Simulated scan of single mutants.
Amino acid sequence: MPFYHWRDNDLILDCHLQPGAKQPGFAGLHGERLKIRISAPPVDGKANAMLIEFLAQAFAVPRQQVSLLSGQQSRQKRVLIIAPQQLPAELGNL
């Protein structure tokens, strides 16, 4: 099963978050999930907020179109991106 699936025009990603990383970005696969590095620490929702901001920029949508479906307190997250305008080039090799 891939780390993503489409629901009409919306994209659902299964992610593994690595908070506190030196460089934010996509980092390949972690099992069957997309590994994403975020520089924010995993406290007070900072990592979740940075993840939403990172994905909004990567998929060229406003932050309001990115939301966590599950995993608010976990590294394993499911994220909804409403009508992404672009697919990041980094994901083409996965």
Rank of each mutant, 00 (worst) to 15 (best):
F3E: 07
Y4T: 07
H5F: 15
W6F: 15
R7S: 10
D8G: 03
D8Y: 09
D8F: 06
N9E: 15
D10Y: 13
D10W: 14
L11W: 02
L11D: 03
L11F: 06
I12A: 05
I12K: 04
C15T: 15
H16I: 08
L17K: 02
Q18N: 10
G20D: 09
G20Q: 09
G20N: 10
A21I: 04
A21W: 05
A21F: 07
A21H: 03
A21E: 08
P24K: 05
P24C: 04
G25T: 07
G25K: 05
F26P: 03
G28H: 07
L29S: 05
L29G: 04
L29V: 04
L29W: 04
H30A: 15
G31A: 12
G31V: 12
G31D: 10
R33K: 11
L34A: 02
K35R: 14
R37K: 15
I38V: 13
I38L: 14
I38K: 01
S39E: 04
P41F: 04
P42A: 15
P42L: 07
V43M: 11
V43H: 11
V43T: 13
V43D: 09
D44V: 09
G45I: 10
G45Y: 10
K46E: 11
K46C: 07
K46G: 00
A47D: 12
N48F: 03
N48P: 03
A49E: 12
A49M: 09
A49Y: 03
A49I: 07
M50L: 04
I52F: 03
E53W: 01
F54D: 01
F54W: 06
F54V: 03
L55Q: 02
L55A: 04
A56C: 02
A56R: 00
Q57K: 15
A58P: 00
A58D: 00
F59K: 00
F59T: 00
V61D: 02
P62K: 11
R63H: 08
V66T: 03
S67A: 12
L68G: 04
L69C: 07
G71K: 10
G71M: 11
Q72T: 13
Q72H: 13
Q72I: 14
Q73D: 14
S74R: 14
S74Q: 13
K77W: 00
R78T: 14
R78C: 08
R78M: 11
R78F: 08
R78A: 08
V79A: 05
V79D: 01
I81D: 00
I81A: 01
A83V: 07
A83F: 07
P84E: 05
Q85K: 12
Q85Y: 02
P88G: 06
A89P: 00
A89W: 01
E90S: 12
E90Y: 02
N93I: 09
N93R: 11
L94H: 08
